[in-house]
Structures are given as structure tokens and as C-alpha cells.
Design a protein around this nucleic acid. Structure first.
Lengths: 203, 203
DNA sequence: GTCTATAAGAAGATAGAC
DNA sequence: GTCTATCTTCTTATAGAC
């Protein structure tokens, strides 16, 4: 693997576990398998490594949202899709999504680092809010609006429905980030949540 | 104010903003209004200051939960109370609680520090989960169970109802912790959430 | 591009006067 | 209990050989 890339990888791992201030360049170097001074052939400072990680995050985020704007935010076809699936399949999708966010290596480290650094970096705070509040909220609101218009769901405030659907998923995810051994418990609650949400709001 | 106490106060403020590793003893001393070496007459190390904060957190937490076991967890009288209040009053209570958690100085710093340090300290992880998941979940589940038994709410899984009630409040709180300027927006959603929850689940 | 050696400075902590 | 002076160690970063 490309050393320059591997440095970012190791650094993100360490930053996501301890936070920027508790990680020393020597530790990053050790993880990469080189000595600390060699890092400086690739990046001009520790801060530079952090900034490169940020840049990568920005790129992934933009890629992801522009992709969403092509396919995901096509609520009409998405809601058409939901129309034809059973509650069981809805649960399967919810759990799949939850598991991806929880286990995808990059997603997980990215989220933990944002969590740790959110109060000392305004840009990270915004990135966090976008990824874990604004975007899910926007997408699911649109989707639910379609389902309501099609008469499949009760005519309630779609924005609040989205909040009530997504917030429990998010909360359970934060619990698992902290205490991974609670994942079975979380999955159990997640499934019940989706079924109950569906039962309460379906027309 | 007692210097020994003030050190903890300043340290907690700084730790909650930057995290342990990004705070230097000189900064703590400066905040207190003394020089760094004077700190060591009160605490034997930086870690010792951190541990003292932890100890204080533990005490407050125990105090709080034992208090809850006397009054708050008395679901019967609490649900009797909810029985007699209007939706408007419910909203007022919800917003009051939200505002307290968001603005109470200690509560706020406490939560931010836990947020930052949760992945490097298992005890903090547990404390966090207890305070912001287990305890609210337990209390509200009990309360909702009473309301269901009294025929005031639909006979759904109280545990999941509690999750669906509390998670949005928690999510909105995290948004405001990151971006305080979004509080009006959050309060607006919070009110709608409570009204909608009430409308959907009331019998 | 990686290494060893080392500079430069920061940060935690101590000594001892007041 | 607070200060100045100082020590020690750690950490970032550079120099220069290979």
C-alpha cells in the first residue's frame, strides 16, 4: 500500500481512538512501520496529516451527497420501491443500513473522530451535523412525504416523522460506538422500533 | 471561591472544550488566576485533576439516581400527574427539561467532556450510556407503562415508545451542543415532536 | 524515501524563597 | 499557598548520510 495513503489511514485510526492531542507522530510512524522523521517526507507537519484527513472526508462527503442527488434523492422511485416491500423487508433494510454505518471501517473511524473533535473545530461540527442530522433528515422527509402523498402513510408532519424514525437509529448507533458488546440489544430494539413506527404511521 | 474547587471548575471547562490531551496545566492555572506550579499544591498531577473531576461526576450521578429512586421513579404518582395535564403543559415540561440539560453549566460541560473522552476511557463510556440512554430509557419506559395500564396510551411496547420519545430529544440536544445557533430550530422541532408523539400514541 | 542523530521547544513537575 | 527558577522528559521537526 502507498505509504502516503497508509499514513492517513493509521493517523485516522489513532485520532479516532484518542483524539488529535493524545496521538504522537511517533505512534503514527510506528503504525505505518517507519520512523517518525520519515513521515516528514510525506507531510510537512502533524497538522498537515490532520488536514489531509479532513480533505479526504470532504471529498467522500461530496461524492456521497452528489451520488444521493442522482439516485437516492429520487424519492418517487424510492417510495415506489417501499410501496412494494413488506414490513419484514423494511426491517432488513434498516438493519443492513445500521450495520453498515456501525461496521464500515472508514465510516466508523470518521464518525468517532468527528465526535471527539467536534467542539474544537467548527468545520468538523458542520460536517458532523450534515452527515448525521441534516442529510438523513432531508432524505427521509422527502421519502415520507411521497409515501404520505401516495396514501400509504398517515398525513402527519413528514419532517417530524423523519426525526422520529432516524433519531432512535442514531441513538442506538452511538451506544454501540461506545459499548460494542451491546449490539445485539441494539439490533433487537432497532427491529422493534421499525415495526412499531410502521404500525403507528401506516395508513 | 475555594481554589481547589475552582481548579476543577476551570479544568472541566477546558477539558470539555478541547479534551484532556489538548489542555495544558498552564492554561488551567491561567484560568484560575495562579501560576502552573501552584496547582501542584492542590493536586499532585494533571491526571489527578482529571480523576478528581471524575470523582465529582460519579458523586453527582449517584446523588441524582438515588434521588430519582425516591421521587422520580415513583411512576404511579408521576403518571397520575401526567394524567391531569394538557398537551400544552406536556410540551412545556419537555422544553423545560431540554433547556435545562442544554444550558445547565455543569450538565453541559459534563456531557461534552464525556463525549470527547468516551472512546479512551471505559468508565466514562459507561457513565455516558447510563446518563443518556439507560436511565432515561428506564424511567420513561416505566412511566409509559403506567399510562398504558391506565388506558391513556395505546398498548404498544413501552420500551420502544420510550426510545421513540427520548431519541429525538437527545439528537436535537447533540445538534445544539455542536451548533448552539440552531437552538430555535431545535425547540421548534421538539415541540412538534412531543405533540405528534402524543397524538399518535394517546388512546 | 528511510534511517540516525539531534536540535528546538513545549509541557509536566519539583525546589525552595517568601 | 503562591511565586520564580529550573529540571526532566517528551514531542515535533530538521539535517544529512545512505
Amino acid at each position: 500500500m502507498d505509504t502516503k495513503k497508509k499514513i492517513l489511514d493509521v493517523a485516522l485510526t489513532l485520532f479516532s481512538e484518542k483524539g488529535y492531542g493524545n496521538v504522537y507522530v511517533g505512534q503514527i510512524a510506528e503504525g505505518v512501520g517507519i520512523k517518525a522523521p520519515s513521515l516528514y517526507k510525506h507531510y510537512k507537519s502533524k497538522q498537515d496529516i490532520f488536514d489531509a484527513i479532513l480533505e479526504e472526508m470532504r471529498n467522500r462527503y461530496n461524492q456521497q451527497t452528489s451520488l444521493l442527488n442522482i439516485t437516492g434523492s429520487d424519492f418517487q422511485s424510492d417510495s415506489q420501491f417501499y410501496n412494494n416491500i413488506s414490513e419484514d423487508e423494511l426491517v432488513k433494510i434498516g438493519i443492513g443500513l445500521f450495520s453498515f454505518f456501525l461496521h464500515d471501517e472508514y465510516e466508523c473511524k470518521f464518525r468517532k473522530m468527528l465526535t471527539i473533535e467536534q467542539f474544537s473545530n467548527k468545520e468538523l461540527a458542520k460536517l458532523f451535523s450534515n452527515q448525521y442530522f441534516n442529510e438523513p433528515q432531508k432524505y427521509q422527509t422527502g421519502l415520507l412525504q411521497m409515501l404520505i402523498m401516495q396514501g400509504l402513510m398517515k398525513n402527519e408532519d413528514a419532517n417530524i416523522m423523519a426525526l422520529q424514525f432516524f433519531a432512535p437509529i442514531y441513538l442506538l448507533m452511538t451506544v454501540c460506538d461506545r459499548e460494542p458488546q451491546r449490539e445485539p440489544e441494539a439490533l433487537n430494539m432497532l427491529e422493534k422500533h421499525i415495526r412499531q413506527f410502521n404500525r403507528m404511521y401506516k395508513e
